[in-house]
Design a protein around this nucleic acid. Structure first.
Lengths: 199, 199
DNA sequence: ACTCTAACAGACAGGTCTGTCTAGTGTGAA
DNA sequence: TTCACACTAGACAGACCTGTCTGTTAGAGT
């Protein structure tokens, strides 16, 4: 679903993607850059070059488009983190690989911090944004906890939550303070915490 | 008989406080509990038992009311942190006192995480919310950096930023995940980081 | 040729929000 | 008394937003 491949001329007669794909792309760009509340439906459809009726026939509501946008980002982040983790066998390095993945994202142009915390902060309880954010955070916490356990932490649940604090704090530092050094500093802090929890 | 006897929740019939004070109280309660974007002007004035014209004659705009609300919280948080820090002389304890202050806030009923990051996430660049958030964060980073230096950290600037990551991450864990153990876990993580940075 | 589907353009309804404005009320001071 | 002032109540304008609806067009499958 929602192939993020963006095609590269997959040979179709027209290189115009479907309305669904163009909408998701536009939502991803605009929602992330400016926030889900600031960006209205009209901006989305104009940017996507799509009729309003197409948005509502494919996604049903703005809230569901927000959900699709966050699901897309969840998939991409998950793939990136899993790739970094899988590149190592040493348990300690596998924990820190999560922060390598984060630092890699920080370096990308236009990175503005965690899309989930931003969207959740703008949205009301029960909204798709909050639901998907909770889902994403639960997944990430599970990853950090599992990796902490494999690395021999005395209390992997606690360490997992502490590592998530650093992860979140780094994303916030990027978004609000535009702190350029947040990536490596978060990784160093994670390493210090991990080493203290293994001793 | 004053027709204003039916004051809002914040004010009683014999409420002699000025409209300015009642508005600030209402803003503090509603903006914090539900968000600056969700809560409209009408909710504020109803809760304060105040006419709309009074709001605009005293604060000028909703944005300035948001600023006053954040300035109020900044003052209170600053006082609380300074009180906790001043209660200790040991440099290590003085660093951790910042997290004691945070844990104390976490324990209060109705605590919903950092008001500044929430308000900033909902607001656009250039707004009063973003300005006051940057001001608050710069102050807190300065405190953490100074205390880190006094505690003998090898690189107090770095440690200060790392401690702020933990501080922010704990607030986020409270707000989004309602993580009950965030307070002590953040303090423990800060202690581990501090000890590693002094060695 | 015929039909079915996806998509287009855009008007429109109904709601919410901020901010302005009019008009009236109670109180204290000169 | 008379004036100044701070306040109340609420209508209103203007902007914006989501979501619906009508009508049109183009292409693909049968």
């Amino acid at each position: 679903m929602s192939t993020t491949a963006t095609a590269g001329t997959t040979g179709s007669a027209t290189d115009r993607r479907t309305a669904r794909e163009r909408l998701l792309d536009a939502a991803n760009e605009l929602f992330y850059a400016e926030g889900v509340h600031t960006v209205g439906i009209d901006r989305i459809i104009e940017h996507a070059g799509v009729a309003k009726a197409s948005l509502y026939s494919t996604y049903g509501s703005k809230d569901e488009l927000v959900r699709a946008y966050l699901v897309l980002r969840h998939e991409r982040i998950q793939a990136r983190i899993e790739r970094h983790v899988a590149a190592h066998t040493d348990p300690r390095e596998r924990v820190l690989a999560v922060f390598d993945a984060q630092a890699e994202r920080f370096a990308e142009p236009g990175y503005r911090g965690c899309a989930f915390t931003a969207a959740a902060a703008e949205s009301e309880p029960g909204s798709a944004a909050v639901e998907e954010t909770e889902s994403y955070r639960a997944w990430l916490l599970g990853v950090l906890t599992d990796l902490s356990r494999e690395a021999g932490a005395k209390n992997p649940e606690t360490l997992g939550r502490q590592l998530q604090m650093i992860y979140d704090g780094a994303g916030l530092a990027i978004r609000i303070d535009r702190a350029a050094t947040a990536g490596p500093e978060a990784r160093d802090a994670a390493a210090a915490l991990l080493d203290a929890a293994r001793a």
